[in-house]
Design a protein around this nucleic acid. Structure first.
Lengths: 197, 197
DNA sequence: TTTAAGTGAACGAACATTCATTTACATTTG
DNA sequence: CAAATGTAAATGAATGTTCGTTCACTTAAA
């Protein structure tokens, strides 16, 4: 029996995400993908049932990689300031180390696939995050508020900053934009201050 | 000479945005759009040069409507807390009053069209925003920071909250989500607190 | 009567998916 | 050890469909 060529599957995945990031979902056609990956169209269908399956499998795997990176050295019993610093570090590091994969996930989040995409978040990841804010509230380090309000204030600024960075610009008229450590620290500090009682 | 049927152009615009919001950019085909709008395919080409032109014209007009709504009763010389309250009110109101249009703009912002899309922001809108934060810093109401850091901390939480609301949910496991005034106030308060020296 | 709005049919290109065939490797056989 | 065999990987061509766009034509109002 002939074994699968791992390099081919990797090429499919990589090029598919590149196409989606650079040209959007309408830029991902099976023929174009095959040409970009240097394989035959039919080969894609050995690995994936159809186009939809390919997209969802990509999302599933990258979501897993993302959540694993996000939980690195994280412990829900950390102090609030420590935990927030860890989360901002982990999340921004994942984005900057894996810009294609992270931007692909962001495209998913802002597409009709969104509902299916968040379903890939593992229970233990969600529970760790909920336990963290529960502890912080209990310890008087965090104002009590709905999960959604916390998430919006705590992390949305981080993702926006990283998006500005990867876009290379923010507003027309403002110059090119390059995120640095000082800005990240400043934003994190503001967020912590806002969330602290 | 036969006059243009305004209702037809409106139907095209409305249905195009609906298709993009509900099915993504690959869901917007000219044939499907014509069928949805109850007109002939060729009619679309009377109003728009091609598919790309249609998308960009939609974006241009909706961006204008959005910035006009955002500037309502806004004055850069307002106090920081007043100005922020005005902006959160204006921006959330536009989203909730025009969910299709707002979500269409958000799809643009997270697509390869993004660069063209931000170019539609009028200079006076940007200048008003910049003057507002300049004044606030001068008056000691706002910590000095790069525009991008400010924007991320000040508004990204708002857009994330509204997105949770329109999605109807946040994380799997968390129940359905409905944004209310109290949550909005709480988030705004946190943001202002974080940005104040 | 004039003129632009509006149309349905038609164009070739690109699309997702399938299929008969070939290829390359692991295993079995001599 | 080498040749034959089995099998899933890999393929290019082909299928039928949908795509964006155009065009010769009809319609309606100024």
């Amino acid at each position: 029996m002939r074994p699968r060529d791992e390099a081919k599957e990797q090429a499919i995945r990589k090029k598919a995400m590149e196409l989606i990031v650079e040209e959007g979902f309408d830029g991902l056609s099976m023929h174009k993908l095959a040409r970009a990956a240097g394989i035959s169209v039919a080969t894609i269908y050995i690995y994936y049932k159809d186009r939809e399956d390919l997209i969802l499998e990509l999302c599933k795997e990258e979501t897993l990689r993302m959540t694993e990176a996000t939980l690195k050295n994280f412990d829900p019993s950390m102090s609030f300031a420590e935990g927030m610093a860890n989360q901002w570090r982990n999340r921004s590091k994942f984005w900057l180390d894996n810009p294609i994969e992270a931007q692909f996930l962001e495209r998913m989040r802002h597409s009709p696939h969104h509902v299916k995409s968040i379903a890939f978040l593992k229970k233990d990841f969600i529970e760790a995050m909920q336990l963290f804010i529960h502890n912080a509230v209990k310890n008087g380090e965090l104002t009590s508020m709905p999960l959604e309000v916390f998430w919006s204030v705590a992390y949305a600024p981080l993702y926006q900053l990283v998006k500005f960075h990867l876009d290379g610009s923010s507003l027309p008229g403002a110059g090119p934009f390059k995120l640095n450590d000082k800005m990240m620290k400043q934003a994190l500090q503001a967020v912590i201050k806002g969330l602290t009682p």
